[in-house]
């Protein structure tokens, strides 16, 4: 074997080069998006959800459905029609078009679900973040929480709906007046878990204010748990609206409502099953798809799934 020196040359050591990171740049939201669209099932459910939501927002504009308006009330031939091309979901006991009714009801349910969740989350996160940070606030907030959480929500809802009367705004008020405290309590616990981690200590040593700590150090870590909470909260609020309307506490007669519809048509469950099952199915599709999409988003927003 001959020594072929010219085959090898000394490589230069470049200190700067050794510091370079070869991996592609990491972007949080891009990774969230990539993980989310990776799952074909959730994308399908997401498309269904978007279709239902957009349709129920647009359809009532054209149908101008009003539950108090029943022009065919005296026309026996228009009652209890089976689903057909003209009446895709059939007609009900006073000759109203069920198709229009279902979408108008879905629209109201969705608006209430989103608005209440939004209000509850905003108040809950703001209060919860401060609550988790401040030990002096914790002392009295926990007592407030104990008192409020021990009063049954149904009792609050009944009393308030008798006082305020039924209607869109009062229902939103009822659903928000005490529910934000559960969000706040949840956030408080989460904040406490990560409050004393070392990087927060480091921020404190750098003189970072509590507010900046909350927005920069704490909340970005809570995106995925907040997403999970929202994913549960929206369908739960919609179900609760339906439940309250079913009991007669929610929306009044003059508002289309899936809950009121379901409670009205329960009597026709055997004779005209479509009257009962169609509103129930629409409600189920909305709740389940919102829940699945929300959970998928929550999973995708957890950076541990980004690898």
């Amino acid at each position: 074997m001959t020594n072929k020196d010219n085959l090898f040359t000394f490589a230069d050591f470049d200190e700067k080069e050794s510091e370079r990171i070869a991996a592609p740049r990491y972007s949080y939201w891009k990774s969230v998006w990539r993980t989310f669209i990776h799952n074909k099932v959730t994308v399908t459910v997401c498309i269904i959800m978007l279709t239902v939501v957009i349709f129920s927002m647009i359809q009532p504009i054209f149908s101008k459905y009003d539950p108090m308006y029943a022009p065919n009330i005296n026309d026996a031939s228009m009652k209890f029609l089976k689903p057909s091309l003209q009446y895709p979901f059939g007609t009900d006991n006073i000759g109203r078009n069920l198709f229009d009714g279902v979408w108008a009801g879905a629209k109201n349910s969705l608006i209430i679900g989103f608005v209440c969740t939004f209000i509850n989350m905003i108040i809950g996160i703001a209060v919860g973040a401060l609550w988790g940070f401040s030990k002096s606030m914790d002392k009295w907030m926990i007592e407030v929480y104990n008192v409020v959480s021990n009063v049954p929500f149904l009792l609050i809802a009944m009393i308030l709906s008798y006082v305020l009367g039924s209607g869109f705004k009062s229902l939103i008020f009822i659903m928000c007046v005490s529910n934000w405290i559960y969000v706040a309590y949840f956030i408080r616990t989460q904040v406490m878990i990560i409050r004393d981690r070392e990087y927060n200590l480091a921020s404190r040593c750098l003189g970072t204010s509590t507010w900046t700590m909350i927005t920069k150090n704490i909340l970005p870590f809570l995106i995925s748990v907040i997403m999970t909470y929202v994913a549960r909260e929206i369908p739960a609020t919609i179900s609760y609206e339906v439940f309250l309307s079913y009991l007669g506490l929610g929306l009044g007669q003059d508002n289309a409502s899936l809950g009121r519809m379901i409670s009205q048509y329960t009597t026709y469950m055997n004779a005209y099953p479509h009257l009962f099952w169609i509103p129930v199915s629409v409600l189920a599709i909305i709740s389940v798809s919102l829940y699945i999409v929300g959970q998928a988003l929550a999973d995708a927003s957890d950076p541990r799934t980004h690898m």
Binding site: Y28, R197, E198, Y199, L201, A202, S203, C205, L206, G207, K216, N217, P220, F221, P303
Partner: peptide, 23 residues
């Protein structure tokens, strides 16, 4: 307080735990 924060700084034990991972 501001002066002291600026003049005394700390280096932490665990570099993985002492940096904000989302920043």
């Amino acid at each position: 307080d501001r002066d002291v924060i600026r003049s005394i700084q700390m280096i932490f034990q665990d570099p993985a735990a002492s940096l904000n991972e989302r920043a």
